[in-house]
Computed example of a mutant assay.
Amino acid sequence: MNGVPRAPLYLGLAGLIPFVWGAVTYLSDDLHAFGSQTFGARFVGPYVQLFYGSVILSFMSGILWGFATKTSGSKAATCYVLSVLPALWAFFMTGGGPVTTGFNLIVGFAGLLLLDAAFWYWGLAPRWWMKLRILLTAVVILCLSVGVYL
């Protein structure tokens, strides 16, 4: 992750904890039981991933909104419209059961990566942005896939 500032890198990696934890508690009955007893049933398996995933898509809408402020005119209008799509996706496409919601979040994070690439290409995101976003998105999609495909 050469070139990515430490604070965004470490915070981004820390932000993966609920996704990874959800995947491992889905795969391990012992960890699932420990997590349920220690943290509550909401904080294990797909439940933590799905809730947190919708929160993160909404958070990323705010990040893109911030990038949109760096431009003006019709390009700014386009960027503002694009920036709200991840939050709207999370709002409308979650809640249909764990497998459907997990799949929709995978699609949402893949779409977010395309938006990240567009904002980066337009020079609105930092130069290191895509290095970080590709790594984080790959881990998120892998972890969400555990609940969708296993």
Rank of each mutant, 00 (worst) to 15 (best):
M130V: 10
Y121E: 04
V107T: 04
G53N: 03
L50D: 03
W120Q: 02
L142A: 15
L88K: 05
Y149P: 02
F51M: 12
F39L: 15
G66M: 14
L114C: 06
F59H: 06
A68I: 11
Q49L: 07
S54W: 00
A33F: 11
T38N: 02
I106A: 08
T25P: 01
T94S: 14
K131F: 09
V140E: 01
V20Q: 07
S83K: 13
F51E: 05
S58H: 08
G35T: 03
F34P: 08
A23Q: 12
K70C: 02
L82E: 07
G73A: 04
F91S: 07
V99D: 02
P98V: 10
V140T: 06
V24G: 06
L115N: 01
L31S: 04
T100R: 13
R133N: 13
G62A: 09
G102L: 09
C143N: 07
I17S: 01
A110L: 14
L113R: 04
S61W: 03
F59K: 09
F92R: 05
L57H: 01
G97V: 09
L113C: 02
L124A: 06
W21V: 01
F51K: 01
W21N: 00
V140N: 00
L50M: 14
L135D: 06
G73H: 06
L105F: 08
L88V: 10
G102C: 12
W129L: 08
L57W: 00
G15C: 08
K131W: 07
F67T: 04
G96D: 08
L150E: 00
P8M: 04
T71P: 14
H32T: 01
G111W: 07
L136V: 15
F34L: 09
Q37K: 14
Y10P: 01
V44D: 14
S72I: 08
L11W: 13
W65Y: 15
W122D: 04
G22S: 07
S72W: 14
C143F: 05
Y149M: 08
W129F: 13
F34Y: 11
L114Y: 10
V148T: 02
